[in-house]
Amino acid sequence: MKSKSGYIIGKIIELILTLLVVSLLVFIAFSVIPGDAARVMLGPNASDSQVELLRAELGLDKPLVSRYFSWLLGIFTFNPGVSYSYSIDVSELIAQRLPVTLGTSAIAMIMVIIVSYPLAILSARKPGRLGDQICSVIGHVLFAIPPYVASLLLILLASSVFSLLTVGNYVKPSDDFFGYIGCLLLPSFAIALPKIAMSFKFLRSSIIEQQSSDYVRTSKSHGLSDFKILIRHVLPNSNVSSITIISIIMSDILGGSLIVEQVFNLPGLGRLLLSAVQGRDFPLLSGIVFYIAFITVILYFISDIASSFADPRIRLK
């Protein structure tokens, strides 16, 4: 597939196929949950006929295949049904919690880029010297700290030393935007730390690798300043793998935010997920899981397409 559009179409087909498989996986996984949802809702004292009535109402008595398709339809129209435990529309529940999860992920991603890029560039300029060594070692250590451990340690630090940034109080963005950002800062930082280390390490080695290549030497000998070489040539060439790494980091950040929300007591998707798990809440659970997977698939898809633009040779492979 040498053409741009051919490649993109191929990727779109792959996207749809992957989503289908994902949806199948999600659906099958949740259909085998032991325990009948209707009975769980009504309690052990309900009579059999009541349970049957509820099952018919919820559509649980239809054959598996038709349930799959009606669920699939619901998912794609953003209406996966009503939550068992909360009795509200699943989409409403998710929409409430989305700002938190998306907010932390976005802030974390911004932190990663802002910190790791300059550090990586600076380190790569003088590889092996003291500044570089220190950064690398710190990077290695940070890499090993799980985000929720980092968050615990940060809470310790923040509350005992600083008494800043109150933990545990969530402010809605509609009430007070800066307060909202403020209470998300610490959690985002906790999530971002190991990813900063990962991104820094990777960028740095990528830049160093570029610097020993011929075209850099040639440009230098032509008198092009280091800075310009960096901006115009080195960075764009490392773009391809950067994009891949960034998409991996983004999906990691999404996953990491799930646990960190617990630590900081933020009302995000993670908490919702956990309560859905405990309540055997099939619509809610499948909805959240599918949408998160959906976001990830789209992310990978975008990064694939972006890579093919950054380096057209990819399309030929």
Binding site: L25, D252, I292, T296
Partner: peptide, 22 residues
């Protein structure tokens, strides 16, 4: 690869959480 990629689309924690929950 399709199957494997689908698994990789779930953030790892999510998948493990759900599997253990079920």
């Amino acid at each position: 690869m399709l199957f494997g990629n689908s698994i990789m689309c779930f953030p790892g924690i999510l998948l493990a959480l759900v599997a253990v929950a079920v």
